[in-house]
């Protein structure tokens, strides 16, 4: 395969994972701007395991992802007590604390960054993408999915029918942490070098942008968003130094034109109707 295409697809796959992680939390009506923090934890923990301790890649990815999920549980307990804008800021603060921590933490390179990781392949990334997608679809059809829907509509209503709202949110937060952590581990062993600046607040914001612009209503929207907005900056390369200005204009414009995102449930139904002939 063309190595440029391979690179674009790899970055896209990692972006899809980040979008899924943002969506996992967003599905319970909470928006996190701190997922880059989880990504950093997954990246640095797995990199430390493979580079400094000589572990194999797969167990390192598993431990990196689990570490991010565990931190998710730990941080989620206090942070999830916050609502609305406070929750957004709380997660943002979490992400920045993690980033500045790794900027100063010498065992994983501090400001010098970390090198020596390798091994992530395109196939690996998409196996993880496929696995998480299947899990998302299965969860969406399960009782848990309906519960999340109820949560999205009304907390009190959900509580009244006996749902443990807080526990569900905590699990979703850790689940989002797990996915972002694994994305980070894959990223570290694909990019071959990491530094704390790779996990800044814009990475978290992008993950959420993928979901909101792609469409919050279905998991396919998150994936579509990640695909489109990974390809867009590449497609705009011909604009040279005006590239990112154009990217900004397109994002703002799209948000105005399609505030519900590109892909909505109604649209999916129409698409399905188009492909599935009715008797």
């Amino acid at each position: 395969m063309n190595i440029y295409l391979e690179g674009v697809l790899a970055a896209m796959g990692i972006n899809i994972l980040l979008a899924l992680s943002a969506r996992a939390i967003l599905a319970t009506d909470r928006l996190s701007l701190g997922n880059a923090g989880f990504m950093a934890i997954g990246a640095y923990v797995s990199a430390y395991l493979t580079v400094s301790l000589g572990w194999d890649l797969y167990p390192a990815i598993a431990v990196g992802g689990s570490a991010a999920a565990a931190i998710g549980l730990l941080v989620g307990l206090p942070v999830l007590r916050l609502q609305g804008i406070y929750f957004v800021m709380g997660t943002l603060a979490f992400g920045e604390v993690v980033r500045t921590f790794f900027q100063n933490f010498e065992p994983t390179g501090g400001a010098y960054g970390m090198r020596g990781m390798f091994g992530t392949t395109l196939t690996m990334i998409y196996v993880f993408v496929a696995a998480f997608l299947v899990l998302f679809l299965a969860l969406g059809r399960s009782r848990l999915g309906y519960v999340a829907d109820a949560l999205h509509d009304d907390d009190e209503a959900a509580r009244s029918i006996g749902i443990n709202v807080d526990l569900l949110r905590l699990l979703a937060f850790a689940w989002g942490g797990l996915i972002a952590g694994i994305a980070g581990a894959l990223f570290a062993h694909y990019a071959l070098y990491i530094e704390s600046g790779n996990f800044n607040f814009l990475v978290s914001a992008n993950a959420v942008l993928f979901v909101i612009l792609g469409g919050v209503q279905t998991v396919w929207g998150a994936i579509l968003g990640a695909v489109i907005f990974s390809l867009l900056p590449e497609g705009l390369r011909f604009l040279a130094d005006w590239r990112l200005s154009a990217y900004g204009v397109i994002l703002v414009g799209l948000m105005i034109l399609r505030p519900e995102g590109i892909l909505t449930r109604a649209m999916l139904r129409r698409l399905a109707g188009f492909f599935v002939r009715k008797p």
Partner: peptide
């Protein structure tokens, strides 16, 4: 409130560039 908030991030990217 989430959508406009994200839109402002995009506007910020535009201003910077």
């Amino acid at each position: 409130f989430l959508s406009p908030m994200l839109s402002t991030i995009a506007f910020g990217i535009l201003l910077q560039n």
